[in-house]
Design a protein around this nucleic acid. Structure first.
Lengths: 187, 187
DNA sequence: GTTAGCATGTAAGGAGTTACATGATTTT
DNA sequence: AAAATCATGTAACTCCTTACATGCTAAC
């Protein structure tokens, strides 16, 4: 139950710091260029987020000299942070597989065990299936021609994403069958 | 410049009240079942929004008896509200054509003049084109296989929506050619 | 020398949510 | 008699943004 509503930003920071320690400015760059979404995070949300995570003991600070007098503050995942990330990934449910969170999860795939990847793919699939049913039932009750067309196209997009996921899931299962225990530590 | 950042909720309420007067509870129902998005608005956002709109003089209140002692408050668009709605539609730019706003605009199509519909369709198309370019340039710089696949699929979806819009635009232009001045008042 | 990038933050505000508070009516 | 639906709101909170504040370095 408890499980603080997964903030996308925090999850993303945990994911990035899992890969390697980084300072605020660098985190923001990677956040906005490499992570799976279109959205741009600002410093006004990033730095306070880092402070919260520090307070909770999920990350630690390490001042670092950059050659001259310039100092930057490198953040590193603590053991508690690692456990928190694992905890969040353990709790991946369809409800937590909105577009943005899914993008972040996907960005972690390279470090994830096959069973985690499958759990995420299935979670996303379930969520899309629910949305598709809803869209179809709305479509059935929509008289306006324009709205019908909008929803028809929406449903088609969702169907396509489900089909795409089916392909990924099948591939993942083939891989898992070939080599049952992968080395990836996240899962 | 000015143009208060178009809040989706306010635009949606203007659109619904443009069709017909309605009370808060009824607005919320239509908001969450008929409008183009998946999101559900709560009373905690709707009622304060109605108050703001009242203060600005865009809507007016009309208590109404429902048969017994029960009274409900029906809201009606004022002349200033009509003008505000027209003003917002005049300013439709690609930047204002995010997924949600586009859904609301689309819901107004039945009341819109052909040129307004075309403006909205083109605005959305421009926005998607920008997103597509961005996605492709990211794709070109993405090494990770999983992220490549995510972006490839994302780009494909955007391409499809652009293609869908092209069809709607072509149809709209044929219609406009057949009957140059439609009766719809919004535009 | 000025623009762009590096680097870290704070304050105020926006736009929504959930939970609370209340009460009547209709359906099961 | 319980549950769903009708009906109107408020308070506290969340998570983010923009604008502000500061200052250094690299490139053009």
């Amino acid at each position: 139950m408890s499980a603080r509503r997964a903030r996308v930003l925090e999850l993303a920071v945990l994911g990035l710091l899992y890969e390697s320690p980084l300072h605020g400015y660098g985190l923001r760059k990677r956040l906005n260029s490499e992570l799976g979404f279109f959205r741009a995070f600002s410093y006004g949300s990033l730095y306070p987020c880092l402070k919260r995570m520090l307070r909770r003991g999920h990350i630690s600070q390490h001042p670092e000299e950059t050659g001259f007098g310039r100092t930057r503050i490198v953040y590193r995942l603590t053991e508690a942070g690692h456990q928190h990330l694992h905890g969040m990934l353990d709790e991946v449910t369809p409800a937590a597989c909105d577009d943005e969170s899914f993008g972040v999860y996907f960005a972690l795939f390279g470090h994830a065990r096959s069973d985690l990847r499958l759990r995420i793919l299935h979670g996303r699939r379930d969520r899309l299936l629910t949305r598709l049913k809803e869209l179809r039932s709305r479509l059935a009750h929509t008289a306006d021609d324009y709205l019908r067309e909008l929803r028809r196209h929406g449903a088609e997009s969702v169907e396509r994403e489900i089909h795409w996921l089916d392909g990924l899931i099948a591939r993942e299962q083939r891989l898992a069958a070939l080599s049952p225990s992968q080395p990836g530590p996240l899962g």
